[in-house]
C-alpha cells in the first residue's frame, strides 16, 4: 500500500515528462514572453509588465478576432452537430443498401485538413466553383464565397465542419444504437409521435454523446488553423482572422512575438473559463444512463 502511490506516479511519469517538456515548459515560456518586449528579431528582450495586455485591451482588431472566434466555433459546432445528427438519424432506417450510405456518410473522416481545404477552395472558387454554377442554375446571382467578408467565415466554417461530419456521425450513430429498443416500443404503444419520441427519449439518452461531440466540435472550431491558412489567410478584410490566426499573424508575420504571446495567454484564460463553465452546466444536465 505504501508503494501504491509510487507505482501510480511511475505510471504517470512518461506522459508527465513529455507534457512537461513539450507542452508545459513552452507554455510557461510563452506566458513569460507575454510580459516582455523585444525587437522584431527576438533580440534584447526586456520586461514590460502589463504593457502588452494594456495595449490588447485597447486593440479593436484583437477583440474582433475574439468575437469572430466564438462565432466561428459556434457555427462549426452547430453545423457539425446538426448535420451529424441528421446523418445519424437517417442511418437508423434499416433499408437495403444502407451500408453504402453509411460508408459515404462516414467518409469525410478519411479526408485530411489540407485535402478538405483544397476541395472546398475549388468548390467555392470564384471562377470555376461548382457551388456558384449550381446557384446560377437556380437563377440566383453567384457569390464570392471566399472573397467577400459576409461569406468567408461561414465558408471556412462549412469546410471545417464538413471534414468532421463523418466523425460526429459515427459517434452519434453509435449513440443512437445504444438506446434500448424497448423504450421506443413502449413509446409507440403509448402512441407518442415521432417528434415526442425524439424529444423525450432520443435526445436525453443521447446527451452524453452529444455533449462529447459538441465539446470536440468547439475545440475544433477554436483551434482551426490549416483551413484558414489554405483558404483565406485570414482575409478578406480580416473576416476570417480568428484568434489563433491573429496569434500566428502577429507572431510570425507582423514580427510581434511577445504581443502575440499576450494574445495567446489571454485567450488561453478565456477558453479555460469557458470550458470550466461548460463542464459545470452541461455536466449537471446531461443524463447518464
Amino acid at each position: 500500500m505504501g508503494l501504491e502511490w509510487l507505482e501510480g506516479y511511475g505510471l504517470f511519469l512518461p506522459a508527465a515528462l513529455f507534457l512537461l517538456v513539450f507542452t508545459l515548459w513552452p507554455a510557461f515560456q510563452a506566458i513569460l514572453l507575454s510580459f516582455q518586449s523585444e525587437d522584431p528579431f527576438g533580440r534584447g528582450r526586456f520586461w514590460v509588465g502589463l504593457d502588452n495586455f494594456t495595449e490588447l485591451a485597447h486593440d479593436p482588431r484583437f477583440w474582433t478576432s475574439v468575437w469572430l472566434t466564438f462565432k466561428f466555433a459556434i457555427v462549426v459546432a452547430l453545423l457539425e452537430v446538426a448535420l451529424g445528427l441528421l446523418g445519424a438519424v437517417l442511418l437508423q432506417y434499416p433499408v437495403p443498401g444502407i451500408g453504402l450510405f453509411r460508408t459515404i456518410f462516414f467518409m469525410t473522416t478519411a479526408v485530411s485538413t489540407a485535402v478538405a481545404a483544397v476541395a472546398w477552395g475549388w468548390f467555392l472558387h470564384p471562377v470555376g466553383g461548382l457551388l456558384n454554377r449550381l446557384i446560377e442554375g437556380l437563377g440566383l446571382p453567384p457569390q464570392g464565397w471566399l472573397t467577400t467578408p459576409e461569406w468567408a467565415l461561414y465558408s471556412v466554417a462549412a469546410a471545417t465542419a464538413w471534414q468532421a461530419i463523418g466523425f460526429s456521425t459515427i459517434l452519434l450513430t453509435a449513440g443512437l444504437q445504444d438506446i434500448p429498443q424497448e423504450l421506443y416500443e413502449a413509446a409507440r404503444i403509448d402512441g407518442a409521435s415521432s417528434w415526442v419520441t425524439f424529444r423525450h427519449i432520443t435526445l436525453p439518452l443521447l446527451s452524453p454523446v452529444l455533449f462529447f461531440v459538441i465539446v470536440l466540435a468547439l475545440v475544433r472550431g477554436f483551434t482551426a488553423f490549416g483551413q484558414i491558412h489554405l483558404l483565406t489567410r485570414g482575409g478578406p478584410s480580416e473576416a476570417t482572422t480568428v484568434w489563433i490566426y491573429r496569434v500566428y499573424l502577429d507572431a510570425f508575420f507582423n514580427l510581434r512575438f511577445t504581443y502575440a504571446a499576450a494574445e495567446g495567454a489571454l485567450l488561453f484564460l478565456i477558453l479555460l473559463m469557458l470550458t470550466a463553465l461548460q463542464f459545470y452546466f452541461l455536466g449537471r444536465r446531461v443524463h447518464y444512463a
Binding site: 501504491e4 502511490w5 501510480g8 506516479y9 504517470f12 507534457l19 507542452t23 508545459l24 515548459w25 513552452p26 507554455a27 515560456q29 510563452a30 514572453l33 475545440v219 477554436f222 483551434t223 488553423f225 489563433i244 496569434v247 500566428y248 507572431a251 512575438f257 504571446a261 495567446g264 495567454a265 485567450l267 488561453f268 477558453l271 479555460l272 470550458t275
Partner: peptide
Amino acid sequence: RLPGRELLFGAVVALLLVPGEVTFLP
C-alpha cells in the same frame, strides 16, 4: 489512489486547452 490525483487531473484538463500556436515558438 494518488495524493493530489484531482489536481493532476485538473492540470491535464487545463493542458488540453493550451493551443499549439501559443507554445509554438518556444
